[in-house]
């Protein structure tokens, strides 16, 4: 009696192990996917903890009063740890920026697309060279401003015009524009 029982069990094991590979494959796939999903779900909190925390995100908007900036001058504000150039352009500089034919530009973009309508004299750009991340010179009137009257990067010689557009390499793109809005006649909110 017991002999027959154990023989049946043994033959059942053989059947499952060899003769029915699709069932075993199915079990392996289901187990494997469950483990993968579980480990992924456990790993995500670890990975996400490296993203900006709430206190870092809370620092991501600033207000700047533009009133003290005289015509022709520029100041640097800090937003998300980056320098932001705020420049009060002279009428001459605005005219030069608007008058530049787009086909002379490395990264063609009109000046109108880089300022707020009615506030053309205010240029707000991220003060980081699009080549390898240095801060270009030109915010102080005593700084070299390059051949185009904007900014000059000391690291590899990129030059930007009075609209912050790249005019001379190796930088590939214009100075970035932060999201901002006028919340008063001479006050802006960046971020």
């Amino acid at each position: 009696m017991a002999d027959t029982a154990s023989a049946t069990v043994r033959s059942a094991i053989t059947t499952v192990g060899v003769a029915d590979p699709t069932k075993r494959d199915m079990l392996k796939l289901v187990t494997g996917s469950a483990v993968a999903i579980g480990v992924g779900a456990l790993a995500w909190p670890l990975v996400d903890s490296m993203n900006p925390a709430k206190d870092v995100l809370a620092l991501s908007s600033i207000e700047v009063d533009l009133a003290p900036i005289q015509e022709g001058q520029a100041i640097t504000a800090v937003w998300r740890g980056k320098p932001i150039f705020l420049r009060n352009r002279t009428a001459q500089e605005v005219k030069e920026a608007e008058g530049t034919p787009l086909n002379q530009l490395i990264d063609p973009q009109s000046d109108a697309d880089r300022v707020k309508p009615g506030k053309e004299k205010w240029l707000v750009v991220i003060g980081i060279c699009t080549h390898l991340g240095c801060v270009p010179l030109g915010n102080k009137t005593s700084d070299p401003r390059g051949d185009f009257g904007g900014w000059f990067c000391p690291c590899h010689g990129s030059q930007y015009d009075t609209s912050g557009r790249v005019r001379h390499g190796p930088a590939p793109a214009n100075l970035g524009l932060p999201p901002y809005a006028f919340i008063g006649d001479t006050k802006i909110k960046i971020g």
Binding site: P45, L46, N51, A53, K54, D55
Partner: peptide
């Protein structure tokens, strides 16, 4: 405390 309040999933970690 910052881990508990501000860091993403910091409380869980």
């Amino acid at each position: 405390e910052r881990i508990m309040r501000d860091v993403n999933y910091g409380w869980l970690l």
